[in-house]
Amino acid sequence: MSTRDVVLVALFAALMAALGAFPPLMIPAIGVPITAQSMGPMLAGGIIGARRGALSMLLFVVLVAVGLPLLPGGRGGLAIFAGPTAGFILGWIAAAAVTGVLVERFWSGLSFVTAFLAAAIGGIVVLYAIGIPWISLVGGVPLATAAAGSAAFIPGDLIKAGLAAAAILMVKRSYPIIRPAHGRP
């Protein structure tokens, strides 16, 4: 890790905090507030890559754990990790890693579709694959019940994957950070 890598990791952890302070979007048809913060893991993986992206999410999780109120509504502290939905916070690390691996894989011909798939697989499929069993385990309810309770957030997350994909492409065009897998300069 170069100093620049450390700086990028720290900046994306700080970006997560800024996203948490964005006012939540309320879409009446969906009924649950959409917060910008869960776009963070998709953006981190898709813009600074799998390794740095995952480290930036780990760093953000540590900052929340040590008592900084960085989650939407000023929540934070160790209590977050004792609650039943902690998997959806800790899962951000894997979500950024998977989005990053996929974006790196499709980097040279990255399109909106591949960027969207990378963001959705990492930021939704992987995240829910961690978050739902976590609720089931900690809350003692069957997987299906935990999944049904989480389903309301999927439409909002799909919108976020679309926004993240567009942002990943815009940043790739103007200031690419990920290097193509073949032929490093």
Partner: peptide, 25 residues
Amino acid sequence: NPLTLVAPLIVRLLKMADEIAEAID
């Protein structure tokens, strides 16, 4: 909107990263 805000914000941060890393080194 989130998109017109997030993309320029990230580009600003990436440019900053180079300067900060140079200053630290």
